[in-house]
Nucleic acid binder design. Structure first.
Lengths: 230, 230
DNA sequence: TTCGTTTTTTGATGAATGTCAAAAACTTAA
DNA sequence: TTAAGTTTTTGACATTCATCAAAAAACGAA
């Protein structure tokens, strides 16, 4: 777990995604932590499109968001959030995959995954301002957009429709978590794996078995056996 | 499970809680479903005091809430919400206790408990407008305050501080659920019982063992054995 | 490609927990 | 208070799953 990396900030305008990705890949190899800062007239299209599915925002609120979100590109296995530190950002995952995990008796326990169009953060730390108990680690090279808690709070006081948007987002995330909770606690391991296969096959396709086993609350050996007998 | 009961609406002003409780008790015996309608200048004090811990409301917003919440008093074993029906109310539990449960393969699975100062509803049904999959049943005679989704939405559009309050409430409920999730899935049965003993002893004191076992995801027999060896 | 490392699979064993059944304790209503 | 019903406890046994160890497969860097 590398807590201290060399950082590069790159400001850009009208750069192709492919070029951007290649550049980042190159810098990852040199062990740099890359933070791309897009011109404000660019991008966040996907973010704005996504939140439209929650609630419609005024043009002013959209412009304000554009100002405050900062692009961040991280490579596979890098950490977005590390346990013990206060997490001051809320991130939108534009492209890629990551996992939230914490350490229990020396073992890593993965308790959630994030994919395209998810809002991710250590919610506990972000909301309470206490140090995070969980780590967030990249499973693939990913493109994220981050906003600080201060910026977000400022915007929430300026734009009422943003407050409503966030409330609706929390509602959605709440019932999603509730569903996950019921699945996790009250169904057998094999059934939970079946559910995963049917409802979120992308998890199985993109995440190594070990993490999935941990996520399902079973040992990797047991999951391997379940999988072998379909 | 009685879906259709005789109802009494009682409008009152300046009635002692003891008298109210005695009256309700009497009516429960006669198998009435009691709905008390307080004069708007009375009560909801506890509710308003409680939500102050989340966010301060303007006097106008407080007055608006007073108008919209309706008192509801139910007896032990009665149902607040039944599976299959759309739950259109959000409730504040002033006094009493209840459980949320659903049916899985013919067995009742209790997945949460509610106590004093909790907001309760079938969140999935309330938020999505779909029929509830869970039942909410009273564990003790309880005093609740309910608001309809329509009223709430109307108030949210009128009072921005209410929107903020609700967002903050969702945040709290979200991280509370997340904690419960991690506890549930990744700790052993005995440890979960220990946690319950330490963190929420009121659950153990006020809820029958069978429901607690179900809540912990273990059989009543196993819980009985865990308990016998402390 | 090849070597070394990590991940996944397979097998043997033991611990934890579920299930069924019956007894004991507790509740409730008449 | 009793009698009926419900909940909790106890015992015997079966099942599920974790653990440890070792082999096989997949992955990654040189």
């Amino acid at each position: 777990m590398q807590l201290c990396k060399r950082q590069v900030w790159i400001c850009y305008k009208h750069v192709l995604n492919e070029v951007k990705a290649a550049l980042c890949q190159f810098l990852f190899c040199l062990d740099f932590h890359v933070i791309l800062k897009a011109s404000t007239d660019l991008l966040i299209k996907q973010l704005l499109n996504h939140i439209k599915t929650y609630h419609h925002l005024t043009d002013e609120a959209q412009a304000a968001l554009r100002e405050c979100f900062e692009e961040k590109i991280l490579g596979k296995t890098e950490y977005l959030v590390t346990a013990g530190k206060i997490c001051k950002h809320l991130y939108f995952l534009e492209r890629g995959a990551l996992r939230g995990f914490y350490n229990l008796d020396g073992k890593d326990i993965t308790h959630w995954f994030g994919f395209e169009n998810d809002f991710v953060t250590s919610f506990h730390s972000f909301i309470t301002g206490e140090p995070s108990v969980e780590n967030i680690q990249l499973l693939e090279g990913s493109v994220l957009w981050g906003i600080t808690k201060e910026s977000l709070n400022r915007l929430l006081n300026l734009h009422n429709d943003l407050e409503k948007l966030l409330r609706i987002a929390y509602e959605k995330y709440y019932i999603r978590l509730e569903e996950r909770y019921v699945n996790a606690q009250f169904k057998a391991a094999a059934e939970r794996y079946q559910n995963l296969l049917e409802q979120t096959p992308h998890i199985i396709e993109r995440v190594p078995l070990g993490h999935i086993a941990s996520y399902l609350g079973i040992s990797a050996e047991t999951l391997s056996r379940i999988r072998s007998r379909f």
